[in-house]
Every structure is written in structure tokens, then in C-alpha cells.
Design a protein around this nucleic acid. Structure first.
Length: 415
RNA sequence: GUGGCCGUAGCUCAGGUGGUUAGAGCGCCAGGUUGUGGCCCUGGAGGUCGGGGGUUCAAGUCCCCUCGGUCACCCCA
């Protein structure tokens, strides 16, 4: 047991697993970039207020934040979620709308780790601000769906709901509150139900589950703005061939959501944590952070959970090899250095052995690396100014003049 | 925050009722093959038995504490 280990709830992602990680991020970036989303890079810690402002009654903010005072006495929190920082940046810089951004960043939540849950986890996500056009909802939800589909995931359920807006939600909340007042709730929500009755719908405990069985549903009380908005989102998704289920209990963990909320659940994950992505519309968030009224919508997807789901479904294995070519040099190693440099300069992924190991050892290393080709520089080749090119799959090899090596390798690699 | 299970080589694990120098497989290194990988054979390196305390003539093995891992509840990616 090493003296120092990664802190509780964190882990190290090393090669070769990290290559899969990088490939996932690249895939995500490609998908959303093609839809006009630009990368936003920001701090991974913020003034505590950025998060407090957006979710006072949520677990994430109430009891899971990593908070501390920095040396200047500022109250800091490691970001527990991705939306508030992007919205804070939007309010600070006021970029032209629609502002469509994507990110990849770590999130921190002080929870007990378990399968698919960490204290530091990583999310890729998008945020789009500046319009409440339901077509944007469709675009954003579709991106989330397509990213997962693109990885090869098939066993997924898209849950959809609408939480209404300022026009219809207050009246609904009163109804819900009145309904819940006659029920026995779990100890957690006995008091909190007044503060935020929606939370009760989300509670998994038996008491609350039973109490909310016949509760009024927000989707049945949407106003004349929200109802057609929600209907258009559904029509749009249907038109794109994206299947979804209306889930009236879907509240999500953060308070800022309005209208559309959604969650992508994996049917392949057997653990309790099966949400691989989630998000929704947050039309009041910019104002809460001191900005001009600006509607927005976004989602986040958990990289760890996406990869877990991929494991379960046996898809998205990641890159097979790290390099295509391995240089074997028994003349001291300088020739390997020179040859590797030339190949790398030509865009061919190349590695080599160090420490003047035996030819046998170098070939073993070549084999283990997964390289398809070994280049051999021994005494004979060095003397003749040649290089032996060996196909590690078939075992066939030929010796060519050193200047022709790159061309030969390219041909063998099928480029 | 609460609870279950588990901590022996880099990894996966053996080590009845406590008793001599703690083992295996895989991996790693070297040799068999003084210019060649995958298969095979041989050898080698590698362990504060998570840590601390206690019981005992004697603790990997029993007791306590602690740290860590894992799974679950709540909630979430």
C-alpha cells in the first residue's frame, strides 16, 4: 500500500484507459462543434455565492460543496456543477446571443463514493443562452442523445418533463403544497416540503413515494405559453426520431430549472447511479446572477458514467494502439532517436526502446505496444545506410535504403 | 451523514482450530535462440501481510482503534 493515495472519491486515469477518455472528449467536441458550439474554458472554483444563488434548497449546494476561504479571505467553492459558472461568465462578458458554448471540466461534490459516483467527476456539456425558442430545446436535447448514440450506447431512456414558468408554476406549487399538507412525508421533507414542494416529487423514500402517488402534475397545469412550448419540444424530438418518455416527477437536482427538463438514463448500468446525462432550461438564472433577463438551456454528461455504460454495452473500446511503429536499434540508440524523429515529423506515431536493451527485449516491447511495424537498425543496416522494415502482423520484412523508410512505412500502414 | 462486506507481491488471490525462512497464477526482468516479438521451457527480482495498540512463549491468523477500498440508502453525472 503506497503511503499516499488519491484522495477519497478521486481516481487517477492512466494510459491506456486515458486514451479512451480523450477519445470521448474528442467525439463530444466534434459533435457539438458541428452544431456551432464553441469551447469555454473557465475556473474550476468560484465565489461561493455563484452556487448559493442558484440552488439554496438543493443537496448539491446545501451539503455537498467543497468550500474554503482562500488566503485573501474570499469564500471559494470548487464547482459542484457546470451551468452556474458558464452563466456567470456570460453575465460578466455579455457575449452576443445566441451564445452557444461547450465545456469539459471536473465537478466536485462531497459525497460518499459508490459505483458510478465520485467526489471529483468530470462532465462534458453545453449551454445555450439568448433564446427561449423551443427549437433550441430540441437541438440541445438531441445533441445529448446523439452524443450517447454516437458512442454506441443503445440501452437508454430519455426522460422529459416541463416545470412551467413564473406564470403557471406558483399556482401549481400551491396546489401541490395543499395536497402534500394532508400526507405523511419522510423526515427529510416534512419541513422542506414548504420550502420547495417539487423536491418531494423527486424523493425516493417510501413515505414520499406513497404520498405523491396521486399528486397534481405540473404538465397538467402549464400556462398558455408553457404548454405549446412543451408540445413543440415533443414534436421536434419526434420529428428527429428521438424516443422519449414524459416523466412528471422529473425535477432534477438544481432549483434553477424552468420549463424543459430532461435526463438520459442508461438501462445498462446495474448500479443505483444510472443517469448518464441531464439538463434543462433555466430562464431565470442570468437574473439570479445579476445579469439581464436571458433564457438559456443546457446539459451535462458524466464522463465516468458514460464510460461505465459503454463498458456494460461493450461499445466504444477506445484506440487499439498508442503507436504504429516501433524502432529497434542495437547500435546504441542514437539511430533510433534520429529515425523516430523523422517518422514523427512525417506524422507517424512512433516509439522506441531505451537503455540499449537486447534486440529480443526491444521486439517484445514493440509487440506489447501494439505497433504494426518494427524498424530495425542493427550493425548491418547501419553500415549499409539501410533500415529493415518488419510487419509485426505477418512477420514479413524487407530492407530498404534509409531515405525510403517513410514511404515504405506509409505504404504498409495503408496510407 | 448512516449501514453491509473487504484490506496478504504491480494485478487476481491461496494461506483449517494462532506455531519453523509467507505461497501461486498473471505481469515484469534475464537466459534458452551471440540479429528478431507473439507460443513454450528455466531462472530471477519484487511483500512494513493497510497502519497503530493489545492478548500470547508465539499473531497474516484472535480483540480494539484507525485509515483505505467497495456496495447500498439519500441525492446526483
Amino acid at each position: 500500500m503506497a503511503e499516499f493515495q488519491a484522495p477519497v472519491g478521486t481516481r487517477d486515469v492512466l494510459p491506456p484507459e486515458s486514451a479512451r477518455w480523450a477519445a470521448l472528449v474528442a467525439r463530444f467536441a466534434s459533435t457539438v462543434t458541428r452544431a456551432g458550439y464553441g469551447l469555454v474554458v473557465g475556473p474550476m472554483f468560484e465565489d461561493v455565492g455563484v452556487f448559493e444563488r442558484v440552488g439554496e434548497s438543493t443537496d448539491v449546494v446545501r451539503k455537498e460543496m467543497y468550500e474554503f476561504d482562500d488566503k485573501g479571505g474570499r469564500r471559494i467553492a470548487l464547482r459542484p456543477e457546470g451551468t452556474a459558472p458558464v452563466v456567470r461568465a456570460f453575465v460578466q462578458h455579455r457575449p452576443p446571443v445566441p451564445f452557444k458554448a461547450w465545456y469539459v471540466a471536473p465537478n466536485f461534490r462531497y459525497e460518499r463514493p459508490q459505483a458510478g459516483r465520485f467526489r471529483q467527476h468530470h462532465q462534458v456539456g453545453v449551454e445555450a443562452l439568448g433564446t427561449d425558442d423551443p427549437d433550441l430545446d430540441v437541438e440541445v436535447v438531441a445533441l445529448c442523445w446523439e452524443v450517447a448514440r454516437g458512442l454506441g450506447l443503445r440501452h437508454m431512456t430519455l426522460l422529459l418533463n416541463s416545470l412551467g414558468d413564473d406564470a403557471c408554476r406558483p399556482a401549481y406549487l400551491e396546489q401541490l403544497k395543499a395536497f402534500l399538507a394532508t400526507k405523511e412525508l419522510c423526515k427529510e421533507h416534512r419541513d422542506r416540503s414548504v420550502e420547495n414542494p417539487l423536491r418531494v416529487l423527486d424523493c425516493k423514500r417510501d413515505e414520499c413515494r406513497a404520498a405523491t402517488a396521486g399528486a397534481p402534475r405540473m404538465v397538467d397545469h402549464l400556462c398558455d405559453d408553457c404548454r405549446p412550448h412543451f408540445e413543440r419540444v415533443q414534436r421536434g424530438l419526434t420529428a428527429l426520431g428521438i424516443p422519449f418518455e414524459i416523466e412528471p416527477r422529473l425535477v432534477r437536482g438544481l432549483d434553477y430549472y424552468t420549463r424543459t427538463t430532461f435526463e438520459l438514463a442508461s438501462g445498462a448500468l446495474e448500479s443505483a447511479q444510472n443517469a448518464i446525462g441531464g439538463g434543462g432550461r433555466y430562464d431565470k438564472l442570468t437574473e439570479a446572477l445579476g445579469g439581464p433577463p436571458t433564457p438559456g438551456i443546457g446539459f451535462g454528461m458524466g464522463i465516468e458514467r458514460l464510460l461505465l455504460a459503454c463498458d456494460e454495452e461493450g461499445v466504444f473500446a477506445g484506440p487499439e494502439r498508442a503507436v504504429d511503429v516501433w524502432v529497434v536499434d542495437t547500435t546504441g540508440g542514437e539511430a533510433a532517436g534520429a529515425l523516430a524523429h523523422v517518422l514523427r515529423d512525417a506524422g507517424i506515431a512512433t516509439d522506441r526502446s531505451f537503455d540499449e536493451r537486447s534486440m529480443k527485449a526491444q521486439f517484445k516491447a514493440a509487440d506489447r505496444s501494439g505497433a504494426r511495424i518494427a524498424l530495425v537498425v542493427g550493425e548491418q543496416e547501419a553500415a549499409a545506410g539501410e533500415v529493415t522494415v518488419r510487419d509485426l502482423g505477418s512477420g514479413e520484412q524487407t530492407t530498404v535504403p534509409a531515405p525510403d523508410v517513410v514511404d515504405h512505412v506509409r505504404k504498409l500502414l495503408g496510407e
